[in-house]
């Protein structure tokens, strides 16, 4: 039986104007990735300063310089509609790679912050 599950992966941004990349592995029993969402513990810094590249199974879904604010949803959006719809992609080897780039913006002052990547997935029930 298939069931919906959400996965969260975090990266830490400790220096201004830096690039941080990481690769995460999805569970083997995940069969589809339906959506993507990015959030942060300091939303304004992610909103104004962030861009990222996201790859799933070595396939690029969002290229370099794609602004993080385009993948964020505020609390005014209904919880069920917050994820960016990918249309149900196969996770392949299950590797999710994010390369996040922090850049100065005149509207924000840097402080270390966390970037969280959420994936809306569908997994096979293990039982």
């Amino acid at each position: 039986m298939l069931k919906a599950t959400k996965k969260r992966f975090d990266i830490k941004i400790t220096q201004a104007n830096s690039t941080v990349g990481d690769t995460f592995e999805l569970d083997k029993n995940i069969v589809k990735v339906h959506g993507v969402l990015v959030t942060s513990d300091k939303d304004d810094l992610l909103y104004y300063r962030g861009t990222q590249k996201i790859e799933i199974n070595k396939e690029e879904f969002f290229p370099d310089n794609y602004e993080s604010k385009l993948l964020m949803s505020g609390i005014n959006v209904a919880p069920k509609h917050r994820y960016y719809d990918l249309g149900g992609v196969s996770p392949g080897n299950g590797r999710v790679q994010i390369t996040y780039n922090d850049l100065d913006d005149g509207r924000s002052i840097f402080a270390p912050y966390r970037v969280s990547l959420y994936l809306d997935c569908e997994m096979e029930d293990e039982l």
């Binding site: 939303d43 304004d44 992610l46 909103y47 104004y48 604010k69 385009l70 993948l71 964020m72 949803s73 505020g74 609390i75 005014n76 959006v77 509609h81 917050r82 960016y84």
Partner: peptide, 10 residues
């Protein structure tokens, strides 16, 4: 209220 916390989905 701020764009980054209350903004609509783009």
């Amino acid at each position: 209220v701020n764009d980054c916390t209350h903004g609509n989905k783009r």
